[in-house]
């Protein structure tokens, strides 16, 4: 791809992404009062996170086994109320350990 075309491509990606993000937040100032729409918008973040995490998390590491054990560890720690960073780093370490052990066996 030529530099001109590449530059054009990057500008297109950046502009399209930014316009989508700015329209509602910048121009929609009204508070929504409809209880269904309010509930819908309140539920969006949870739905997004659920859909993004599963089933993709199971193929996020070197093997399905390490991903499963890493996921279980994340659930265990999250249930016990650990912080985001702790949960994240510990499940990485566990997934890595599982892959190392599986490699040796």
């Amino acid at each position: 791809m030529s530099t001109v075309r590449l530059t054009g491509a990057i500008i297109i990606m950046a502009v399209v992404t930014y316009v989508i993000r700015l329209l509602p937040l910048t121009f929609f100032r009204r508070r929504i009062t409809n209880p269904h729409i309010k509930a819908f918008l309140n539920f969006v973040p949870y739905a997004v996170l659920g859909a993004m995490t599963f089933p993709d998390v199971f193929s996020s590491t070197g093997s399905t086994l390490s991903a499963l054990i890493g996921t279980a560890a994340a659930f265990f720690l999250a249930c016990r109320g650990r912080g985001l960073l702790t949960v994240s780093l510990v499940s990485c370490a566990i997934a890595c350990a599982v892959d190392i052990i599986a490699g040796i066996l």
């Binding site: 949870y46 996170l49 659920g50 993004m52 995490t53 993709d56 998390v57 996020s60 590491t61 070197g62 390490s66 991903a67 890493g70 996921t71 560890a73 994340a74 659930f75 720690l77 999250a78 650990r82 912080g83 985001l84 949960v87 994240s88 780093l89 510990v90 499940s91 990485c92 370490a93 997934a95 890595c96 892959d99 190392i100 490699g103």
Partner: peptide, 18 residues
């Protein structure tokens, strides 16, 4: 090996959020 296991970081964080 380490690069691959970092892939779960973001998902583990999501789990901790939800």
């Amino acid at each position: 090996l380490i690069r691959k296991s970092l892939g779960i970081a973001i998902y583990a964080m999501f789990i901790a959020i939800i």
